[in-house]
Amino acid sequence: MSLHEVNPSVKAFAVVISILILSVFFDPITPLVTILWVVTVTFIFGRVSFKKWLLLFAPFLFIAIIYVWSTMLFPRLQAGDSVIWEWGFLTLTAEGFQRGVSLGLRVLSFATLSIMFTLTTKPTDFLLSLMQQCKLPPKLAYGIMAGYRFLPLIKEEFQTLQNAHRVRGVARARTIPEKVQQLKRYVIPLLAGAIRKAERTALAMESKGFTGEKNRIFYREITVSRIDWLFFILMISAVILSAFISWKLGYLQYYNREL
C-alpha cells in the first residue's frame, strides 16, 4: 500500500475528521501519540523525502513555540492553579504550562496530518477526485483547473513586473501608504491580465462543447476501493487510540472542561 495511491478525497476526509476529533481533546498525550503515528505512516507508506518533510514542518515548529509562549504569558487563570513563577504582570502556572504545551502539540499534530496529505497527493488528482467522488460541480472544478494553469504564467509576469519597476526607477516602498501603492502596482496588472485571459479561456472551453453538465465520462477515472476505506478507518482509529492511551495515563481532558 502506498499513500500516493489512496483516493485523494478519502485521504482529505481522513485528515479533516482526525483534526476535528483532535480538537475535542485538550491534553499533551493525545496529540503526541498521534504525531508519532502519522510520522511513522508518512515515512513508511508515503516514502517522502525527509528534507522536503522537514522544510514544511519547520515553520509549524516555530508556530507551536509561539503558541506555548502566548499561552504561558497570557494564561486563563483558574482558581486552584499552582503558581510556579511570578514576575510583574507575568504569572506562570503549572496548569498554564501544560495547556501551552498541549496547544503547541495540537498544532504539530495538525501539521503532520496535513503534510502527509500534501506530500502524497497530486493537485490535479485531488481536483478530479473532488469532482468524481464529492460531486464538486464540473463548472467550478474545471474553473479551478484553468486558474491553476495560470500560476506559472503569473509567476513569470510577477518577475517581469519587478524588472519593469527597476527600469522605470520605482523607488522602494517604505511607509505604509507607499506599501499599499506598491501592492496595487503588482496586483492590478496581474489581475487585469489574468481576468482577460480567463474570459478567453472560458470561450475556448465553451467552443469545445463544455456546458458544465454534471454527467460526464472521465478520461481519467479516480476510483475508491476497499483499501481506501481501510486507510480511513486506520487513521481515525489511531486518533481515538491516542486519546485512549492518554486516558489510561490519566492525562485526558475534554475541551468542555476549559469553557
Partner: peptide, 18 residues
C-alpha cells in the same frame, strides 16, 4: 489561454468528455 487542463492528453480528452 485556450486550455484548461495540465497535460496534452488530458486537454485533448476534454472535448471527448464533453
Amino acid at each position: 489561454s485556450q486550455f484548461c487542463m495540465l497535460t496534452v492528453e488530458e486537454e485533448v480528452a476534454f472535448g471527448l468528455e464533453n
